[in-house]
Design a protein around this nucleic acid. Structure first.
Lengths: 218, 218
DNA sequence: GAATAAATTGAACGTTCGTTTTATTATTTC
DNA sequence: GAAATAATAAAACGAACGTTCAATTTATTC
């Protein structure tokens, strides 16, 4: 046999990506063979090489698109005006929302960096550095105008990112907490962590969830 | 050739563990071959099987001893008296101290769970669950007696653990921050995160580092 | 409907994998 | 110093790896 009835390059490529993200997230890049991936797609191993020149190139594509998606999501969610607290709220809410809806590719992007070639690793780390730099800027802005009380902006940025990325390690949808509740909790913790000044309004403590800090997917 | 001059089982086993932790942390369990490990030790691959029946058993041994070491370290560091704030301080300081001095085995324990058999995985997760349960207890105690303001103890525990374990991702000794400075920063962030009530003493804001919350190694 | 392009198969390549077996040498015991 | 034991080397096992290549079939173009 050769070309199969109804076969379509675009559909096959999408199926490969989907199966690859799922398998690599579950078993790890090194543990997943091209034959195993092909079997999941319902195709022979040789067919994969029509779409990705090497196994590593496939991994790189998955990670690059994850990072580009994250950055695009943040650029879309970033508030045009408002103070540092608003920006930080939007950052945290977008980060959590993006990652909980992409558990598999997040796992891949966080765990498989060491399987990339030096060149591809550099590219991914550059994307990541730019994203993290934005968070540091928000923290410094807030520290300067008195919104936050922060010891070290770089250290605080890493602490926040690790805390909010870690959601996907334990959080499972369909459990006792919804995404919205989890996001609200993390927003509160983040705001306290940076020493954001709390204001009391009408006797009720004002927590840090504003309209534009709500979770927005996509 | 066969037995080499000066060869000693205990020394060889220790050398295997050390090389394995280092290699697996750097390249990942699946990517490290028994031959590569043997070469690092300066021995033939077959010799490894005198000390560990399988490759996976070697991994399991490394992870089990890491977790047992962490739990032992915490039991030693745990304050006998004092409130929830003291306990939490000790927990964070011990956790950070333990992990920054064991970067490699921490990486292995955090990244290679999926390479364990079901049985071995269950064992490791049981150790981990017990450790995390202790943190949840501290948080609940503090919430009950008014020391902390916490939304959800389980969620907060995971957030704290991910935040303080994440230190090893970015922290490198010999850089601008010392272990003590980093620990102090994380203690402050943790205490704010749980809404610990701050007290003002002599006009100076009291941060949350007490005598028994100092970093202690070993 | 013939010519061309796209999609996939099946077999094969050389390499490396974890592991086992057997033989050999160094060390310890008595 | 012989016997027993511990530690390793060397070679080999079958299986699996990523990848390539030629052949073949379906879909599209004109």
């Amino acid at each position: 046999m050769a070309r199969t009835i109804g076969s379509d390059g675009e559909k096959t490529e999408a199926a490969i990506r989907e199966a690859a993200v799922s398998l690599i997230a579950r078993y790890g890049y090194e543990a997943v063979s091209m034959r195993q991936l092909a079997a999941e797609v319902g195709v022979q191993a040789a067919a994969l090489y029509r779409y990705f020149p090497t196994k590593e190139d496939l991994l790189f594509t998955l990670m690059r698109e994850h990072m580009e998606g994250l950055i695009a999501s943040w650029e879309n969610a970033r508030p045009d005006d408002g103070g540092a607290a608003d920006e930080l709220s939007a950052f945290v809410a977008n980060h959590i929302g993006f990652h909980v809806t992409r558990r598999h590719s997040t796992h891949v992007s966080n765990m498989e960096l060491r399987s990339l070639s030096h060149e591809n690793l550099t590219y991914i780390l550059k994307l990541r550095a730019g994203y993290e730099k934005d968070l540091r800027r928000i923290l410094r802005d807030g520290a300067e105008d008195g919104s936050f009380r922060i010891g070290d902006a770089a250290l605080t940025a890493m602490a926040i990112i690790q805390m909010i990325t870690g959601v996907i390690v334990w959080f499972r949808p369909d459990e006792r907490l919804s995404v919205e509740e989890v996001t609200r909790n993390y927003l509160t913790m983040t705001m306290r962590l940076v020493g954001a000044s709390e204001t009391v309004e009408g006797g009720r403590r004002k927590e840090y969830v504003h309209a534009n800090a709500e979770f927005r997917a996509g």
